[in-house]
Amino acid sequence: SQQEVLEQTDEMVRYAKSFVDDVEFSAQDCMRADPEFVYKLVRMAISAGATTVNIPDTTGYGTPLEYGALIKSIFDNVPEAHDITISTHCHDDLGLAVANSLAAVENGARQIECTMNGIGERAGNTSLEESVMALYTRKDYYGLDLGINTRELYFCSQLVARHTGVNVPPNKAIVGDNAFSHEAGIHQDGVLKNKDTYEIMNAEIVGREAGVLVMGKHSGRNAFRTRLTELGYTAFDDNSLNAFFRKFKDLADLKQRVTNDDIIALVDTETTEIDELYRLEHLQFQSGTGGMTPSALIRLKTPEGVVETTALGDGPVDASYSALKKLSPMPIILESYDLRAIGSGTDALGEVSIRVKSGDQIVHGQAVSSDVVHSSVLAFVDVLNRLAAGIGKNRKAV
């Protein structure tokens, strides 16, 4: 009964008080409880000696207006609450834990119970890093001092993720991989001109590296020009820039993100004319289920004549690449492989884009065919020709 709950509250708080001066009392599911009973409970806990009273939204049911109003009504109906700390404890079942906690702060709460990365029961608890940075960034609105070293937030987030095995989503505010990244062309252009255009806080404040421009299909010409300059490519005219940018956009359609090495390979590829020293003469492969080991036979025309070899692999592409590596006069490490369908249906073309490393050379190869294995092999042969032409050695010569 309510009376039994009140009596137990009085007994347990007094018992705790006999050991320590600072005692926190926490109720359960206050958001869905009878407000009049909540007032009685808070009043009883304070009279028994509680110095902090926690008001949980245990099921994540409340909205910011409702939860904030509940906190305000406690101060209005229990005057002695002004002499202790009212605490919040919110769950994220409706994605409102941080908003509810901040609404409580607006109405007088001075403690937020929260967790790093928002981990917790069911959908999680109030996110510590989001709450901290909301109060820090909008001090003009909340008017509160935190006493928290915000530069440790990202480190702590990574530490928690590593030890709990719960990865941080890329789009997580403050600590997600994308939190300070800009890919949209208009955003990148704005950030390049003035960071404040699209950044309300600096990444360094939370212990991260400065915000980065993510090069992808939404990136604009200005961001691309800036990245080229950062990579040391400065001696190019507008026509060259336009040609590079078109190739960059083609590559971005294949890949979600285009790396610096991709851009270096792209520029070097476009600025070096190559001869077809290597040409595919014959390709044969087999693969299947039931214990069949995928294999491939490759015959190439090379500067030394026609050469041929076979190899096994995990699949026909892997087997073909193993054979090509045997035939290659230089060591080759495949760093990325991307496949895109051109058209629809089973007869769609397969466009393969690869990036390889050979010594200090990084080269990009590309090919199209109606057969995925064939286009994969042609992309590799394209790389051999580019390596033979010396592409990738001088990254700054454009």
Score class of each variant (00 low, 15 high):
Asp93Gly: 05
Phe236Gln: 11
Val13Thr: 01
Asn178Glu: 07
Val212Leu: 13
Gly350Glu: 03
Leu280Gln: 12
Ser131Arg: 01
Val398Thr: 14
Lys249Ile: 15
Ala367Gly: 02
Lys195Val: 08
His91Val: 06
Val381Lys: 08
Ile333Gly: 09
Ile263Phe: 04
Leu192Gln: 02
Gln8Ser: 06
Ile74Trp: 02
Leu297Ser: 07
Arg151Val: 03
Ala203Tyr: 14
Asn167Val: 10
Ile391Thr: 09
Val206Gly: 00
Met31Phe: 11
Pro79Phe: 04
Asn107Lys: 12
Glu152Cys: 01
Lys72Asp: 09
Thr229Pro: 04
Lys393Leu: 15
Ala397Ile: 15
Gln158Leu: 13
His89Tyr: 01
Arg386Tyr: 00
Ser344Trp: 00
Lys195Asn: 12
Val20Arg: 02
Pro331Asp: 07
Phe75Ser: 01
Asn77Pro: 01
Arg227Cys: 15
Lys249Arg: 14
Met201Val: 07
Ala184Met: 05
Gly359Ser: 11
Leu146Gly: 10
Gly68Phe: 05
Leu283Ser: 09
Pro64Gly: 06
Ile174Gln: 03
Gly60Asn: 12
Arg355Asn: 09
Glu11Arg: 07
Val132Gln: 03
Ala252Gln: 12
Gly345Cys: 09
Gly60Phe: 04
Gly60Val: 05
Pro35Leu: 00
Ile391Gln: 02
Thr289Lys: 14
Ile205Thr: 14
Pro56Ala: 02
Asp253Leu: 15
Ala210Met: 15
Gln256Ile: 10
Gln28Glu: 13
Lys249Cys: 15
Ser370Phe: 13
Ser328Trp: 08
Val356Arg: 05
Asn171Pro: 08
Glu304Met: 08
Val212Ala: 13
Ser320Cys: 10
Val307Met: 12
Ala184Phe: 06
Asp83Ser: 12
Glu276Trp: 03
Asp338His: 15
Phe285Ser: 15
Asp22Ile: 07
Thr271Gln: 09
Tyr321Val: 09
Val206Phe: 00
Asp318Pro: 08
Gly176Pro: 04
Ala243His: 15
Phe285Leu: 04
Ser353His: 12
Arg151Ser: 13
Leu266Asp: 14
Ser358Arg: 00
Val398Asn: 14
Leu159Asp: 07
Asp22Trp: 02
Thr310Cys: 08
Met116Glu: 00
Asp92Thr: 02
Arg151Lys: 15
Glu130Asn: 05
Ala341Asn: 14
Val168Gly: 01
Gly147Ser: 03
Thr234Phe: 13
Ala161Gly: 14
Thr51Lys: 03
Phe380Asn: 04
Asp262Gly: 06
Asp314Lys: 12
Ile200Ser: 04
Asp382Phe: 00
Ile274Asp: 01
His82Ile: 03
Leu254Ile: 13
Ser219Asn: 08
Glu129Met: 04
Thr272Glu: 08
Lys396Trp: 11
Phe245Val: 12
Gly392Leu: 07
Leu241Ser: 15
Ala311Gln: 07
Gly216Val: 02
His182Arg: 10
Pro294Tyr: 03
Thr234Leu: 15
Gly60Thr: 05
Ala184Pro: 09
Val160Gln: 07
Ser344His: 06
Phe25Trp: 09
Leu159Trp: 09
Glu199Pro: 00
Gly165His: 05
Asn239Ile: 14
Val98Gly: 07
Val377Lys: 06
Thr269Lys: 00
Asn171Ser: 08
Lys249Glu: 06
Lys249Tyr: 10
Arg162Thr: 06
Val373Leu: 04
Leu378Gln: 10
Leu384Asp: 06
Ile186Cys: 06
Cys30Pro: 07
Glu276Ser: 09
Phe180Gly: 09
Val206His: 01
Thr302Ser: 14
Ala210Glu: 12
Gln286Cys: 00
